[in-house]
């Protein structure tokens, strides 16, 4: 669960983590009902309606207004979005 919350960038307090771990365990237990199914040879269904080759011509539209967009950002500076220092990433 700690790995999952790290992947999802969700910091859960210890109480919340405990409660959620119990709830998720219960659900996952319930979801074991499909283990009984014979799914050999069943094609996964990823798309509700079969469409293919949806393509767009290479024609441009006008950019959004930068000031309008940056005005919605939590922090911006010199025409760009500002974020705290990137540490904890090995880049």
């Amino acid at each position: 669960m700690i790995k999952v919350s790290r992947l999802a960038r969700l910091s859960l307090g210890p109480e919340q983590a405990e409660k959620m771990t119990a709830q998720l365990a219960g659900m996952l237990e319930h979801f074991r009902d499909i283990d009984a199914l014979d799914l050999a040879g069943v094609e996964p269904m990823t798309q509700p309606y079969p469409i293919k080759n949806v393509l767009r011509e290479d024609v441009e539209v006008e950019s959004l207004n930068r000031e309008e967009v940056l005005g919605q950002a939590p922090a911006a500076e010199s025409g760009r979005f500002r974020v705290p220092p990137i540490i904890g990433f090995d880049v």
């Binding site: 500076e77 010199s78 025409g79 760009r80 979005f81 500002r82 974020v83 705290p84 220092p85 990137i86 540490i87 990433f89 880049v91």
Partner: peptide
């Protein structure tokens, strides 16, 4: 560089 910087700015 990224290490030791105070903040970063993003251009998309």
């Amino acid at each position: 560089r990224i290490h030791g910087s105070d903040y970063s700015l993003l251009d998309y």
